[in-house]
Design a protein around this nucleic acid. Sequence first.
DNA 1: TGCCAGGCCCTCTTTAGGGCCTT
Length: 207
Amino acid sequence: MRQRVAVIDFETTGITPGPDCRATEIGVAMVENGRVVDRFQSLMNAGVRVPPMIEALTGISNAMLRAAPPAHAVMRDAAAFVGSAPLAAHNASFDRKFWDYELAQLGLARGQDFACTLLLSRRLLPQAPNHKLGTLTRWASLPDTGRAHRALADAEMAANLLCHLEDTLRGQFRLGDVNHGMLCKLQKVAAAKIRPYLDELQAAQRV
DNA sequence: TGCCAGGCCCTCTTTAGGGCCTT
């Protein structure tokens, strides 16, 4: 895609955002022309405790968060970094909840749609053993981006996967122009109907 | 007191149930 897309990933203290469940780290990988061209990453201190299970998963400790900048400052910087670029994430329904919640703490609201590399992978890469981010990265021989379950490494993994999905649409499905709006529509098409939908898109691009 | 996400997708489905995926 020639347009810039901001691929984001949050580490958090749990599954559902709220007063006791907040983001602890954000990573953003800015994709343009099929590669990562810019990066943003920061731990963020929202004043909540990290449960032991989450610390074991992410390696992010309470001591690390005590030394981290406040969440509102980090989110203000992250929102400025993203600007008006369309968004993407792996299992975007998760990151979208936290993006919206953390922005709402600043009185801000999201203006862009999210593309979801999980939904797109289920449709375009059904032969993969499963659709976890790490599995897809290894299965598609995408670059090792660092420690899994840290925000920027995961954001870059999802960014590389987004580029791989775009390559799949261009190569296997012979689509010329791929853009974020097309991906957002594609991820809503029922998996069983994806092939005829792509055939229609291909035919329309030929006209 | 006891519970604790939710949207997507498949199938032994649609008057439902269970696995996947994210932390």
